[in-house]
């Protein structure tokens, strides 16, 4: 008994084993989880569902709607976003021009300000993007600090 405990402690206290132990636990959880509850059914009632309109020049991001008017977007708490859907249908003059002249630049256009992804990233879930740029900020500060210090020495 003591022998076993000693051996376990010895494995756990070596920091080189840490990642291995963790990976093992994750694998175990995935396997056990799958065995315990295998039907992981997809819920049809999703937020921001997609509908693809192959003929639109905004394909695959055409979600309809009138610019500067309400568009139907399924969000979680629409009452928190009085102008929900406005962003989705807005096209800048440049993107309007592109969409009228070509048919295959949908991705290009939608990543231009105005588009469903912008709606999500800026408006309804704007905080996520803030946090994510904050992570970027922190990680870069860290890398730059180490880098600059090494350079100064």
């Amino acid at each position: 008994m003591t022998g076993i405990i000693r051996r376990i402690s010895r494995i756990l206290q070596n920091h080189n084993n840490l990642v291995g132990v963790y990976a093992f636990v994750v694998i175990a959880i995935i396997i056990v989880g799958l065995l315990l509850q295998s039907p992981l059914t997809y819920d049809q009632d999703q937020l921001y569902p997609k509908s693809i309109d192959k003929n639109s020049s905004l394909d695959p991001y055409d979600r309809g709607g009138v610019p500067f008017g309400q568009t139907n977007v399924v969000s979680q708490y629409p009452e928190n976003e009085p102008y929900l859907g406005y962003v989705t249908a807005y096209l800048t003059p440049v993107s309007l021009w592109i969409s009228e002249t070509t048919r295959f630049m949908g991705t290009t256009i939608v990543s231009h300000p105005g588009g469903i992804i912008d709606e999500i990233l800026y408006n309804t879930r704007g905080l996520d993007t803030i946090i994510e740029t904050a992570i970027l900020f922190v990680a870069f500060t860290m890398a730059m600090f180490l880098f600059t210090r090494r350079r100064e020495e």
Partner: peptide, 29 residues
């Protein structure tokens, strides 16, 4: 496969690259 999923991929990507860069610096250090 919804629009939301796509909006979530972007932060996921960024977190990955950010941590990746920080760790590689740490490794060099």
């Amino acid at each position: 496969a919804t629009d939301l999923a796509e909006a979530l991929i972007l932060p996921g990507l960024v977190v990955g690259i950010a941590e990746f860069l920080a760790l590689s610096e740490l490794y060099i250090e």
